[in-house]
């Protein structure tokens, strides 16, 4: 299966880095430099940066436990007006992204845990591909839209409107 072999024209760019959070800026710059070719709006560029930040941190930190011996592969593909971002880590530790996305609505404790929710809010397509013991691949697509056109991440995200309040803890009588 050759990804290049298709009637659809695609530009494929790839970056491989050691699985450490030190490379997060390098990864963001790599994705941003390719996203710029599609002339996304400043807000969309910020959102893409945010998504890469969350996705790479998950891959390097949770996926690979920041092991320098493991790599994280980042692929950026331009297909027409679409930016496809693929982030693959080799930790091989499956998790349930659906759970994390759902719990993000209710979670008011601890730090983190909202990355997947943010990614889903911003991107147009999101898919996780787990091979237990081998790899986790996150596939995301951001479609460039005409000015004023509604799309993923164009409405204010409830994720960003944090923190949530607990509704069932009774007021403490003093």
């Amino acid at each position: 299966m050759q990804l290049e072999q298709s009637p659809v024209k695609r530009q494929i760019h790839e970056l491989k880095v050691a699985a450490t959070l030190k490379h997060i800026e390098k990864v963001k710059q790599f994705v941003v430099s390719i996203a710029e070719k599609l002339e996304f709006s400043p807000i969309e560029m910020f959102q893409i940066e945010l998504v890469v930040d969350e996705a790479y941190a998950n891959a390097a930190d949770h996926g690979s436990e920041c092991s320098r011996e493991k790599e994280v592969h980042i692929k950026c593909i331009i297909e027409g007006e679409k930016l496809i971002i693929i982030i693959k880590d080799f930790g091989g530790k499956p998790f349930n992204p659906d759970f994390f996305e759902r719990i993000a609505d209710k979670k008011t404790w601890g730090v983190g845990g909202r990355g997947i929710k943010i990614i889903k809010e911003i991107m147009d397509e999101v898919m996780y591909f787990f091979v237990t013991g081998q790899s986790t691949t996150l596939y995301m697509v951001k479609q460039k839209r005409a000015e004023g056109e509604e799309g993923a991440g164009s409405s204010p995200s409830p994720v960003i409107a944090l923190p949530f309040s607990l509704d069932d803890i009774p007021p403490i009588p003093t």
């Binding site: 992204p97 889903k120 397509e125 999101v126 591909f129 787990f130 091979v131 081998q134 596939y139």
Partner: peptide, 23 residues
């Protein structure tokens, strides 16, 4: 295509999970 491309590199029987979150 991405999935099949990844699988083609494994070259052996494999179990895997897919979580299609959006759309």
């Amino acid at each position: 295509k991405i999935i099949l491309s990844e699988l083609s590199q494994l070259k052996s029987d494999t179990t895997f999970d897919l979580v299609l979150m959006k759309p």
